[in-house]
Design a protein around this nucleic acid. Structure first.
Length: 416
DNA sequence: TCTGGGGTCCTAGGACCC
DNA sequence: TCTGGGGTCCTAGGACCC
């Protein structure tokens, strides 16, 4: 049996922990650049503001209803997330962290599943201050569904248990097919075209039909809805397969020099993450994009290249990335976003020399190690490469960000 | 004027080979 | 002028997730 523990309105709940006066009031957390709504309190959901709503389109609704909006504060959310998972790990040996606000637990062996689920919910609330919902079922897909039903219907008080596929079935008859884990924006209208509107409707079809419609994952998904488990809790996290660093700019960017700075900045961040992970990338891709609805030319392009040997060296990554950028930069475009993708990652242990023996040199490793150590000790941009820019007029906007509270000494709340 | 960021998996189709 | 069959590998792009 699997449990899915999912934090309610997670980013909003994090803000409320440190500002209890927000309790019961409409609160929304905005994306980077304060562009769209990425977390909504129940009060904001009730206003009809959808996930991903562009702020400029909804500004009047937000204002009229006195919605408190916050820029996202990922340092704080990441730290709160860690606390939630540490709490769960103290109560179970089998915790798979699935996202910043969700974890699957293996509950095999527990007789009173409902009591166990309530216990988990209560302890996270007490120790961390974050409200969570718990769905329990014989498969992960059903646990996701149980969780969502528990969250949306107050009578369940945040906990719903399906002991079997059979027990889940009556709920699936009322469960929107588009809300099933793995069925998204593209598939939903296709399924509606075949009169499949509820999760239970999927169970009438043969594997062949489902396979044709939804590919191999679809077949597994439907089996999971029947109560036959296809996806297990993953005990050891797999090594990461790609690293992306990108940002939308705070304003339109036209000059290649500024794009160069941005790309150098993202290359440095990607390199830092590679080194943290003890990974080396052998493929580097750069992408740029104009605004979605800006005046002038709409342009989106990317270009990648394979390196002779894997690297985690910021200087190499920057040089490669800026060379790629040179080839896709077009003058006259208003750029709104750029980024870098590092893939084909290998670990230190399996690092192979190429035939010329140009492996990352010990010297490079030492330099980057020193840069990382200094920035770790004295703060993020204590030491950086000149190519990353100094003025950085293109940086993102964060107009109403809260302090980091638990993640920086000088931001700790005072109790007195 | 203003629409996030970071991931994974699957498939189709091209390149290449015999 | 005619123009096979079968395999592998790689990549780009789509779909999905939070």
């Amino acid at each position: 049996m699997y449990a899915l523990v999912d934090c309610n309105n997670f980013f909003v709940s994090c803000e409320r922990v440190f500002n209890p006066s927000l309790e019961g009031r409409p609160v929304a957390v905005l994306s980077n650049n304060d562009g769209i709504v990425i977390a909504r309190s129940n009060e904001v959901k009730a206003l009809g503001v959808p996930m991903g709503a562009p702020v400029f389109k909804w500004r009047s609704v937000l204002k009229k209803n006195n919605v408190q909006t916050f820029s996202s504060n990922y340092v704080l959310y990441g730290d709160m997330s860690r606390r939630v998972f540490l709490t769960l790990m103290q109560h179970s040996d089998d915790v798979e962290v699935y996202s910043i606000d969700e974890a699957f637990l293996d509950l095999s062996g527990f007789r009173d599943l409902e009591a166990r689920a309530r216990e988990l919910r209560d302890v996270v609330r007490r120790w961390v201050g974050i409200p969570v919902s718990v769905g329990v079922a014989p498969t992960k897909t059903l646990a996701k569904a149980a969780n969502e039903i528990a969250k949306k219907n107050a009578e369940h008080e945040g906990v719903l248990v399906f002991r079997s596929g059979k027990e889940a079935f009556p709920y699936l008859k009322r469960f929107e097919v588009g809300n099933v884990w793995g069925i998204g924006r593209a598939l939903t209208p296709k399924l509606y075209g075949h009169n499949i509107t509820k999760a239970a409707d999927l169970l009438k079809y043969s594997h062949e039909w489902i396979r044709k419609m939804m590919s191999i994952r679809g077949v597994q998904l439907v089996e999971e809805l029947r109560g036959n488990s296809c996806f297990d809790v993953e005990h050891a996290p797999e090594p990461q397969k790609s690293i992306v660093r990108s940002r939308s700019f705070g304003r339109a960017v036209r000059e290649q020099k500024e794009l160069d700075e941005a790309v150098a900045t993202y290359a440095a961040r990607a390199g830092q993450r590679l080194r943290e992970n003890n990974q080396y990338a052998q493929h580097v891709q750069v992408f740029v994009r104009s605004g979605l609805h800006t005046k002038g030319e709409i342009y989106s392009n990317s270009l990648g290249t394979r390196l002779l040997s894997p690297t985690s060296d910021t200087i190499t990554l920057t040089r490669v990335a800026q060379n790629l950028l040179k080839k896709i930069y077009k003058p006259g475009v208003s750029y709104k976003k750029a980024g870098i993708v590092c893939s084909d990652l290998s670990s230190t242990a399996s690092l192979q020399l190429n035939m010329w023996g140009e492996e990352q040199s010990a010297k490079q490793e030492a330099v980057m190690g020193a840069v990382d150590a200094i920035n770790e000790e004295y703060g993020k941009r204590t030491m950086f490469f000149a190519g990353m820019g100094v003025e950085r007029g293109w940086r993102m906007k964060r107009e109403s960000v809260t302090p980091e509270y638990t993640a920086a000494w000088d931001a700790l709340p005072r109790v007195k």
